[in-house]
Nucleic acid binder design. Structure first.
Lengths: 338, 338
DNA sequence: GCTGGCACTCGCACGCGCAGAGTGCCAGGC
DNA sequence: GCCTGGCACTCTGCGCGTGCGAGTGCCAGC
């Protein structure tokens, strides 16, 4: 077990290293933080911290830098989340309130996160899974061709064209539309399947095939759209990454283009609060020298999607976590209002 | 006027420089291209080319590199467009044919372009301006709240919520829906305004305000959506840019995040064929060391949107132009089929 | 107008030495 | 027992000078 002072030393190392981007030595530490002990003592502590794997030195006779394990301890035990100041919060709110539609909300959120954290921001579109159905619309495109439009409470619209097994009259269509909406409007996606199960039975025999087809398309749409979209921004911030550019930045850019990778990345965060994955904790190898700070957000109390930022492991964790949390909170509010 | 041989020398310089990424000297030139003259002669030609501003030397006693003006001459006079080989064309076609919807077409196009050219690809979504209306749907969300859904022939869906000045009955809504669709279905966006102009007159006085409001929202949607969306990809290719990373890459990444800038960039290209903008020819200053190769594409004969790539001025112009042209052609085909 | 030759100019890579920062360890003190 | 000051040691980074080689410009000759 590490003594209180050694934890303080680790905290100081992380803070200084994040600030200066340079390995930090014992002397500098005692000067910048009044630890109340001499450099020599700090050196002993550092040696212990190094033995435990919390810090490392790039070369002999250089200062120490935190390891992934060191950052982990820092995040878990040594640092809180730095809350946004009141003016910052107001600015966030104002900026997000100007949004005109869902795309705009997401776009603004990305910009905001990127600016606040000066890192790469990733925002997932609100998921359909936990949302509710606002309205289902059916349009006859042709006698045996129906367009299905699904509108969700988060303002998302999905449409599908359905080829029917048999011609379907305008009256039947209106009937189906009415019945469908009375059953599923304002219900959760997850509940829809059981709610419409017996619907075909209410129709004439000749229409049942079509009704079933339409329903199964609807259910497909509900599920398929878990294949989420997302938006990223602030990639220019990658240029502040480090000195050893090409090698560091390239795999990150590649990873960012793989939507699948990103979705997995965000999806992995299961915590209700802000989740931090540091360096090698990220499964994707291109992101081994980055940390991901993510959190769920949602219109009600529940999370419907995730958002977060990707930055160097050497990042300001308290500040980043604060920004991410605040943005998520306000996006949730905006979504709830609209 | 430059002699034939001097043009050849310029061409050789461009080709070698693109290949090696290093300033090219007179001796190397005579060895790699059989120009039939001695290095000394080439030196004289190079001096002349430099006087004219086609090439420059980074430092005294280094080889020459082409200037923007040199590339311009090369593109205009000295190089053709290198056509794709048959297998390449087949691969393009196959890859694009797998797309399931519009988003997928655009996404695949971006990937393809990025891979083929090994540069950053930018693809604009097919514009609404030249598209036609497939269907307009109106849904009552509340007594005085209507959702307007616009479906286009390119498979795009746009929706808007309209707050009505007065409650609007279900019957009136159905009436409006029917009248609207009979007038605008399968018509071009550009024609819509004049087609619906007198629609309010067909309604009861109390409903006219609402009808007008709905119509003006529709018209807004048609216009506003010229504020196009676009997709970019292959940013990881920026890492192959040059040796002097941070400074080169950063403004480019920043420019790529400004959709407005990109749209302008693509929009500037008026030619029916492939357009090339080299270095400082780009209005946006962050792109002063890049070239943009773009072309319009469309489902019919007409261009409905643009696509292109952004890369270093030192790029393989003939190959890039060939790839861009080919991809545009096949995307057009795919859109026409669907 | 082309060519070979020649002197000249630089940039770059290499090697060297120095200064500075940082460490580990040890003996002494509270 | 823990902290401290001191000391010797080890590296890295930087500045400097040097030599090499590529490339040029110019000139005289064919």
């Amino acid at each position: 077990m590490l003594s209180e002072r050694r934890l303080q030393v680790l905290r100081a190392i992380v803070q200084d290293y994040v600030g200066t981007e340079e390995p930090v030595g014992s002397k500098a530490l005692t000067e910048r933080h009044n630890l109340g002990v001499s450099p020599a003592t700090v050196r002993n502590d550092m040696a212990a911290l190094e033995d435990e794997g919390y810090i490392a030195q790039p070369h002999t006779s250089a200062g120490r830098i935190p390891t992934d394990k060191g950052y982990r301890l820092f995040v878990d035990k040594l640092a809180g989340v730095k809350p946004m100041t009141a003016p910052e919060r107001r600015a966030i709110q104002n900026f997000l309130e100007g949004a005109v539609d869902l795309d705009d909300v997401v776009a603004r959120t990305v910009r905001l996160l990127a600016q606040l954290t000066r890192q790469v921001a990733v925002v997932q579109y609100p998921s359909l899974t936990r949302s509710t159905v606002r309205h289902v619309e059916l349009l006859a495109l042709a006698p045996a061709r129906v367009m299905l439009v699904l509108i969700t409470d988060t303002g998302r619209v999905e449409q599908r064209v359905v080829d029917c097994p048999a011609p379907f009259g305008e009256a039947s269509l209106a009937d189906l539309r009415a019945r469908l909406n009375s059953r599923v409007a304002n219900r959760r996606f997850a509940d829809v399947p059981s709610l419409v199960e017996d619907l075909p039975e209410a129709f004439e025999h000749e229409d049942r095939g079509t009704v079933s087809t339409v329903l199964s398309t609807l259910l497909e749409t509900l599920v398929e759209e878990n294949e989420e979209r997302l938006m990223i921004g602030g990639t220019a911030n990658l240029t502040r990454f480090g000195h050893d550019f090409p090698l560091t930045i390239r795999p990150v850019l590649e990873a960012l283009e793989e939507q699948v990778v990103l979705l997995k990345l965000l999806g992995e965060a299961k915590d209700p609060g802000v989740t931090v994955r540091i360096g090698h904790e990220n499964a994707h190898e291109g992101l081994n020298s980055t940390s991901v700070v993510s959190v769920g957000y949602g219109s009600g109390g529940e999370a419907v999607a995730k958002l977060g930022v990707v930055g160097p492991t050497r990042m300001d964790y308290p500040g980043t976590m604060g920004a991410v949390r605040a943005v998520a909170r306000y996006v949730g509010q905006i979504l709830a209002e609209s």
